[in-house]
Each structure stands twice: as structure tokens, then as C-alpha cells.
Amino acid sequence: MIETRDLTRVFRSGKDTVEAVRGISLDVSEGELVAFLGPNGAGKSTTLKMLTSLLAPTSGTALVAGVDVTADPAGVRARIGYIGQKDGGGHNYRVWDELRLQGRFYGLTNAEAETRGRQLLDTLDLVGMEMRKVSTLSGGQKRRLDIALGLIHEPPLLFLDEPSTGMDPQNRANLWEHIIRLREQRGTTIVLTTHYLEEADTMAERVIVIDHGLIIADDTPERLKAEQAGDRVRLTVHPRDVPTARQVLDRTTTDLSQSSDPDGVRLDARVDRSSYALPELVRELHGRGVVVIAASAHQPTLDDVFLNLTGRSLREAAESGEAAA
């Protein structure tokens, strides 16, 4: 569905040049659900804009739905759906007009556009909103209209740029419900960008981590976490027990670190399947007379993956990215 080779994009303003995308090669097969994860300014949206033909690449090639983005941008646009970060519906226009005409823009007949428009209003819970001005809709309604606008031509490939930014948890869940239903019904290939770790983690089947305009990791969230971060256990013990506790931990865990804690000394270590390993460890420590004050098991998040890959937390990276932009 998507095939890119060494895709780059350089922005020039005056004497400054910014290499927003520095060489992205990736393949996405039909039916995949892929998330581009990275901090703001990492190059996710720029990549997405090149794939949707909204932005011409500086160099490299991209085939999207079998069409070259540089040679035939309109051909790419005819075969994909795109839901951007901002409101798709014109604020001064009526919901129904926007939806109907969007279908016509993609070459549907008036009758087809109206039939599909009605279905979408129904599934997206927008019935009764037809003659409302877009500006009078609530945030959630506007977002649902964006989805309807992106789906009216039933694209086999759908791009979503930061789909849930600024949405409350309920609307976010609602959005995902629609995306997942769409995949089940039509097998739509979905590519989205996000800087929400939980979203990439729970929803995407494949996460492509992008930083400074390059792909730095590309795998399922499970494998990324297992390989790049791994489970950890955290135990707080009495200071006098530290040497014994370290002996025990050294045998079964790796990457052991020690820090002070108001209640004693905290030991932090990497171990496989932490929820199962933790009771074993506590039992063994107890058997050797070590007083365990507190114990917890930690599954890694994609932030740990990002931290391991870049030495920065995604949150910090997002802040510095914003400052630079």
C-alpha cells in the first residue's frame, strides 16, 4: 500500500534550513494499522503530508496506493482519505453541504454522496445536525464530522494526523471505536501519527518511532517494549539489608541500580515477566532475613522504549521540540 525510499524534506526560510525528514524508507502492506510515534517536530506530520501529496518531497520516492506522489499527486489524493489535525468542516458552512460536496469532490454522483452521507451521519451520531453551521458544533461533533468527511468516498487507505489531540477521553474512545469498526468492515489500511504513548501502545499493531526526521524503531508495541526496555522490579529494603538484597538480585536480574528512598534504600532491576518474578524475589529475600518494605513490578511503556533509544523521555523531547519550532 505504501512504499517509500529515502524520503527527505528540507524547509528553507531565509538562510535557515531545517531538515524535517532526513531519509525515510518504509513499507506498509494492505490492512495494516500503523502509528508514527515521536515528539512534536520529529518529522511525523511532514512525512504524512508527503505521503498524502500535500507536500512535495525534497528527494526520495514514495508510492502510495500504487501511485507515485511526485508524478501524480492528484491520483494519490483520489485513492486515499486524509483527516488532518484541525477542523475539516468549514466553520461558516452547513454540515450537510460540506459532507455532500466532499463526496462530489471525490467524483461521487450527487445520489451516491447523499446516500453515503446519510449513512455516515447515522453511524457517527450526527443525525439532526445536517443544517447546523459547523462552528456551532461541539468539539466532539466537529471531530466526528471530520471522520465522516474523511470516509465519504470509502478510501482503501486512510491517513490520520494526530487524530485525538485535544480530545477528552470519551471522545477519544469514541473515535477509536469508529476507526476499529472501519477496519473490521472494510479492511482499510490505516496510518496515523500520534504523540500519545498509550494510544500507539493499545491501538496500533505496528509502531514506527520517528525522531529527528529518521525512523529509529519499527515493530509491534509488544516486541519494542520487550526488546528495547523490558520489565523491571522495584524493591525498598532496610539500609542494613542492602548487601544481602543485592546478592539475591544479582543472581536473577540485570541492570541493577540503587537509590535512596525516605523509607530505606530502593533497588531497581530489569527482569523478565516482572509480575511473576516479584513474588519469587520477595520470598527469597524474606528467607534470607531481608525486610522488604515496599515492592512493585513495572511493565515497560513506549516512553521507556523512546528513552532507551534516544536517551530522552518522549515528554521532555516534545517540550524541547516545541521550543525549537
Binding site: T52, L54, A74, G75, R77, A78, I80, Y82, G84, Q85, K86, D87, G88, G89, G90, H91, Y93, E98, Q102, F105, Y106, G107, D146, L149
Partner: peptide, 12 residues
């Protein structure tokens, strides 16, 4: 507001 980007993404 974003509507123009949505229209730019259509094959018009």
C-alpha cells in the same frame, strides 16, 4: 481552521 487543508487533500 483547517477546512482548506481538507479540501487540498481531495483530488480537486
Amino acid at each position: 481552521t483547517g477546512a482548506f487543508e481538507r479540501i487540498l487533500a481531495t483530488p480537486l
